[in-house]
């Protein structure tokens, strides 16, 4: 049975894929992760998670054109699928509903979407 819940790391990566858009391949995602979170991560770990997200159907991917920078090798560009989009939204909504039930902040915080 395929797991369809999102882990924290998975969710972050999924969001990064969305942010990077046409540039979303393993190396760039790992770099972006490191610069956004200040945490070190190996490309292998990112790749493995992207692969898993693909298996879960949240990401689709295809090989792009070659560039000289990588010794002429192509890269695998990831894009968020509709179900990926949905699961991100669900996760956000779920957290929002939790925030809204949180008394100390509920009055003070304003979320703009």
């Amino acid at each position: 049975m395929k797991e369809t819940k999102l882990g924290d790391f998975e969710e972050t990566l999924l969001l990064l894929v969305g942010i990077l858009d046409k540039e979303a391949y393993a190396f760039r995602i790992a770099e972006e992760f490191e610069s956004q979170t200040q945490r070190a991560v190996s490309i292998g770990a990112v790749h493995s998670t992207l692969n898993r997200l693909g298996e879960k159907g949240f990401l689709s991917s295809e090989m792009s054109g070659a560039t000289a920078e990588r010794g002429g090798r192509r890269k695998r560009i990831y894009t968020i699928t509709a179900s990926g989009q949905r699961v991100l939204e669900e996760s956000r909504d779920f957290k929002m509903s939790l925030w809204n039930q949180f008394p100390a902040f509920a009055g003070n915080l304003k979320f703009n979407f």
């Binding site: 391949y25 393993a26 190396f27 790749h47 090989m63 920078e69 990588r70 010794g71 090798r73 695998r76």
Partner: peptide, 14 residues
């Protein structure tokens, strides 16, 4: 192989 070698190469040079 192709995509991983490419990624690691890019990482290496950067």
């Amino acid at each position: 192989a192709e995509e991983v070698l490419g990624d690691l190469d890019e990482k290496f040079y950067s």
